[in-house]
Every structure is written in structure tokens, then in C-alpha cells.
Design a binder for these strands. Structure first.
Lengths: 360, 360
DNA sequence: GGCGCCAACGTAAACGTTTTCATGAAACCT
DNA sequence: AGGTTTCATGAAAACGTTTACGTTGGCGCC
């Protein structure tokens, strides 16, 4: 019995090879390697060394054919950019690894048809799905979601139509920021630069603005300038606001990119921020803290969204949870310089809290 | 024969069900649905409607058990942050979709053991692998890479040890930038803020600096301050450089985050950039263009790296390519304000080129 | 009209696991 | 001692495909 590496056949070793090598049946090998007991310590040992010698690795296809489990979850994401995407994946991936699950990613498709195809392609490859997509609605899911694949939706308008959904508290975040501008920072009125009307996040943020205005500045008329989440549209909205008279005391942009454009418009006009006009955004993109003045904004814990979505899905897979609950993840108001709060510049600017421990 | 949706059984339909429904054998169903011919047009039709009626979707596990193909490729990535990660995945994903391949992602593991586990977990689940990881070296691959899984390495020091590798031209990019600082911008000497010595990118960038200095400023002594890619270390390096006398005319930071910290140090000291001292970075992170003054840097096309890595892998899978070639992707020098080129401020600042068409 | 050929189709064997069930031996209890 | 329980083990049936190989039948050709 030579024990050289040379004796290892070139073909992939199967469970039968291990069984022959260890002089037991395939059943025993399966039991031993899966640690289900029912096998003597010494035979277990013999099987272990045989498996190691042959470099045996179970075939996942065969295994999941009979088990009906793939230990893989699919993530269906839209065409996302930058920080948001990577943080989301990071949150999901970390949680998945902790549970021994693999992650099948399908991102960067735009269009309903594209999303539907991606979904079908995952059939039978995954035990469950995580979906974040602007194109999924009830009908879409009904039509394309395979019968019995547990699914949790992220940031979806579908509240409790029998789906498990996990939302970001866009409304609450916007509300809190506008409240801060009106009360703590003491600005008399706040204008909104809104996002595209078709966007769910945009709608919710506008709702938060309206509610906060109704509560804390009920006599002040609403002042909404339409944008579309791009920096360019923020710039234009900023100029439109400058043309207003009287000019609002503060501006809440529905996302940071628009706030950025707006800030340029203000600077260009020679206004001081926040002394002449205050500004706040939403998202807390990495750039926000590096602007001068640094941008007050609303921070959402994206990795946390991914993590808890996966936890929820895992719970569904284990049957520990009902598939119909709906939760919301909180946001945090981040006060920096542009919003002109009373505590402005109380502490010296400290830019040294790098977001990225590693690089490249 | 009722044709209602109600007749669709609750269990998942198999090929046998379709066969029974269409009154043919399973073999014919397989042939028909895979479009291999050997079936009449009318039977093909009958099978098609039967399959649609039963919502039949082939079981991937069973299919790949016999086919030995998963149509999935695995991506093994380190604990990456932000733009780099998302762009890389985007490039890979787009190319994969175009080829009908699925993407199994395993990111955010740090440590050799972790990476090895991730690799083993992909056994039999993927047809090939894309690997970008600081912890893989020849030994690691030898020990953990399954026998016959085609693999392409990204950004790896392993040049042509029989592996297919795709590199970023860190050296060339650094060389070009330092050359620009020395010649076009006309600075007499350039100091380097280097990255961690253990990092491959860091080493290559330093090499580029050394070569450019040797070529264009051979009489000037090298001036290298050690950093570790963090903003904090850049800040400290900046202060160290300020303490030098004579002070260098220009500084090349081995990545943008360090350039950022360095810029703060200069501003803090009351220096004007680039008039008093010039600065350049590497990576072209999104923040770079928004700084004031905006940061000159070296841009690498990350999505392109991902895309061509996958193309290469796909070629390997189809047997169209040899598995041992080694390629390098170019970088682009991006001239902005901080490097004090002669064309400085020639054109008005135009910040409206948003990177992200969509948001959230 | 018999012969062979080809296209359409069916039968059955793989693929590599897990799992149920049967079998025998050993240990335990009265 | 005899019966009963436990326990390690093996044989074999699944799981849902693809595919090599037969088996038809029809058709053209001599």
C-alpha cells in the first residue's frame, strides 16, 4: 500500500472511493463525514484519513439534489453604485458566512425583464432570496417568484402584502432632520429639494418633510423644489431657491448629491453656509464629511440592512419566523457644519476617522 | 382536462410531470427544451405548452450533477471597501451576465485560514474562480485550489508561475504621475508618502516613483516617508514633510486617502496648494474631485479589471486560451488642481459630472 | 415488394450523494 | 439463560437530469 501523493488518482474522488479505501460502505462514510454519529470512533478515524488521503470533497450538486438544500442564498440587486452597494453586500456576506451560507449575487440589471431573467436563473440554485429592486412589485413577484422560495424584500413599498420586508426609515430620518433644522437649529422655514417622484425613497423622505413641517412650522407654507437625485439637479434647485424672495432660511435636500450641487450654487452666489442659509442632505455619503463646510446629513446603516435582511431570511429558512412581518431600520441624524445648529463649531473639526481601514 | 392554474400541483414540477402531461418520454422533453433537435415541431410545441402550464423549471442540481457544469463562477475577494469593491463586482457581474454565468461571491474574509475555507466552500459549486486576495501565494493555491478549476488571479504578485494573472499597472501609473510632476508641472523634487511595505500595490507604486526619479531627477536624493494607506498616516507624513528643510516642492502620496490627510496637514500649516507645495495621490476615489483644491491622482479602471478577468476566465472555460498568460491593465493620470500643472485653472471648475447616475 | 436508412422517440443507465430499512452482534435486564 | 434493547453497519432506493443506445415506423430506392 503506497501512501504517496502519486497514488491519488487524477479524477475527482467520490464517496465510493473513500468507502473502498476505508473498507466500509458509502453509508458509513456519509454518516462519518457529516458527523451524525452511528459510527465507531475507530472507523470514523479510518474514514477520515482515507478521505484526506484521497482529497475527497463531497459533490455539492449531488448532495443538494437529494437534500433539497443548496446552502446558498441569492441577492437580487439593481444597478447600484459605490458605497451603498459595497456596504450592503458586506453586511449580507458577513452574516451569510457566519451561518455557513454562500452568496449568489446578481446585480446591475436594469429593466423589469432583466430582473425577471435574473430571478429565473436562480431557480433551484438558492434556498432563499434577498431582493432590493425598484422594479419588483406584487405582480412581478407573483409572476416570477418560484413557489416556495423564502424571500425577504429590502426597501420595498410592498408593506405586508404577505411578504417579508425590511425597510429603511426614510420618513423618520427626514422628519428628524427637518425637526432639527426647525427647532434645535432654530431656522424659521425649511425648503425641500425633492427626489424623483417615482422613487420610493424619495416619496418617503418628502413625506417626512411634510410631517415635520406640519408639526413644527404649521403656519409656514411648504416650499418644494423638484430634483431628481443628481448633483446637477441639486445645483439647479439651489439656483431656483436663490431666486425666491423671501429666500428660505434652510434647505433640506432629499439626498447628498443634490445637497452637493446646491452647496455649489450657494457658494457661487457668495452666500455663507450656514450663516446665510443652512443646508442638510440625506445618505451620509463619504464625501459629506470632507466638504467645507462639512455636510449635515442623515446616515443609514446600510451594512446593518444587509445583515438583518439575511438574518431574517435565515430565520425563515429554519422555520423560526413567519414570512409576513415587516420591519424598519432606523436612521441617524448626523450634525456637521452646514445645518447651522447652535453647537456649530463647538468642537474643532476632526477629519481623522477614516471610513476605510484598508485600501485597494 | 381542466386547464386551470388550480390543477398545477403544489409540489415542484419535474421533467417527468412534463413528460406525462405532453404524453412523451422524459428524453424527448429534455431534448426539446434544450433545443437539440430530434423532435417534431408539433411535439416540441406540445412539450412547450406542457412545461409552461406546469411552470416547469429544470433542477440545476440534477442537471449539473450529470453535466459537470454549474454555469457559475466564484469570486474570492478580500475585505474590500467602497468604490473599489462595487466597481469590481459590477465589471465582473456585467461580463458574467453577458455570458449567461452566475456569480458566487465570497468577500470580506481576512486571514489566510478564512480565505482557504471560503475556497473550499466553493468546491463543486463553480466552474472557475476569480481571485483577488492579498493572502494567496503560490503555496496557498497549490494547497487549496481544487485540481481542475480554472482560475484567474487579479492583482497578484504571482507573475507567470503557471497561473493566469491580470494586474493593474501600479508601477506605470506612479511613474507617469511622478514624471508629470517633475517635467510638465516642473517641480524640482518630489517626495513619496509610501504605503505599507507588505502591500503589493504599495511596493509597485514605490517602484514607479523610484524609476521616475531616477530618470527625470537623477541628481535629486530620494525622499520617502513611510505611511500605511490610512488618512491618519498621511496626515502624519504631511507634518513630517513640513518639518523637513529644505521642504520638497511636490509630494506624491501612494494613495488618495493619505493624500487627503496630507492635504489637511498642509492647510493646517497655512500652506497654499499647489502654489507652495504640490500634491498628488493614487486611486481616484470619488472624493478626490470634490476636494478644494481638487486632487490630482491616478485613476484605475476597476470595472474593466473585473470585466476582462471574467472574459479571460470564460475563455479558459471554453478552452480558447492558455492558462498561463499574464496581462496588465493601464492607469490614467488625472490632472486636477493640487499638482500645480502649467494648465492650472485654465478651464473653470466644473463639478457637474456625477459619478452615480442613480442613487440609493 | 423487399431492402435498408433515417428521423423520431423511448428505455434505461449513469451522475454522487443521503437516508431508510434490514441485519447481525453485543450488551443489558430479569 | 433467554429475551429485549441498543447500536454499528451495509444494501438499496431515492433525488431529477442527460445521454447512449435501442426500437419503431415511414420512406425512398433498386
Amino acid at each position: 500500500m503506497p501512501c504517496d501523493a502519486a497514488t491519488v488518482t487524477t479524477k475527482k474522488a467520490t464517496i465510493k472511493d473513500v468507502a473502498r479505501e476505508a473498507k466500509v460502505s458509502v453509508a458509513s462514510v456519509s454518516r462519518a463525514l457529516n458527523g451524525q454519529g452511528g459510527v465507531t470512533a475507530e472507523t470514523l478515524d479510518r474514514i477520515r484519513v482515507a478521505a484526506k488521503r484521497l482529497r475527497y470533497i463531497p459533490d455539492n450538486a449531488a448532495r443538494s439534489l437529494i437534500t433539497r438544500r443548496t446552502h446558498t442564498i441569492g441577492a437580487l440587486l439593481p444597478d447600484l453604485y459605490g458605497e451603498f452597494f459595497s456596504e450592503l453586500i458586506r453586511g449580507i456576506d458577513l452574516a451569510a458566512r457566519a451561518r455557513g451560507l454562500q452568496l449568489l449575487v446578481s446585480s446591475s440589471h436594469d429593466g423589469v425583464e432583466d430582473a425577471a431573467n435574473a430571478m429565473r436563473a436562480m431557480q433551484g440554485r438558492v434556498d432563499g432570496m434577498l431582493i432590493l429592486s425598484p422594479w419588483v412589485d406584487a405582480d412581478f413577484l407573483q409572476a416570477n417568484l418560484p413557489e416556495d422560495v423564502p424571500t425577504v424584500l429590502m426597501n420595498s413599498p410592498l408593506d405586508a402584502d404577505g411578504w417579508s420586508v425590511l425597510n429603511i426609515d426614510n420618513r423618520g430620518g427626514a422628519y428628524a432632520m427637518v425637526q432639527h433644522l426647525l427647532t434645535t437649529a432654530g431656522h424659521a422655514d425649511v425648503a425641500l429639494i425633492s427626489g424623483p417622484g417615482s422613487n420610493y425613497d424619495s416619496q418617503q423622505r418628502e413625506l417626512g418633510y411634510r410631517e415635520a413641517m406640519a408639526t413644527f412650522a404649521s403656519r409656514v407654507p411648504l416650499n418644494i423644489v423638484q430634483g431628481n437625485f443628481t448633483e446637477q439637479s441639486g445645483y439647479e434647485a439651489g439656483r431656483a431657491i436663490l431666486a425666491q424672495s423671501p429666500r428660505p432660511r434652510a434647505v433640506f435636500a432629499a439626498n447628498d448629491m443634490m445637497a452637493l450641487g446646491c452647496l455649489y450654487a450657494f457658494k457661487e452666489a457668495g452666500l455663507r453656509v450656514p450663516q446665510d442659509i443652512a443646508l442638510a442632505g440625506f445618505d451620509d455619503i463619504p464625501i459629506a464629511r470632507y466638504l467645507s463646510p462639512s455636510l449635515s446629513t442623515v446616515s443609514v446603516h446600510i451594512a446593518e440592512l444587509g445583515r438583518s435582511a439575511l438574518e431574517r431570511l435565515a430565520a425563515l429558512l429554519d422555520g423560526h419566523a413567519q414570512s409576513t412581518t415587516s420591519d424598519t431600520l432606523g436612521c441617524a441624524v448626523v450634525i456637521r457644519e452646514t445645518c447651522g445648529s447652535s453647537r456649530d463649531d463647538a468642537s474643532p473639526k476632526n477629519p481623522y476617522q477614516p471610513k476605510s481601514p484598508t485600501d485597494v
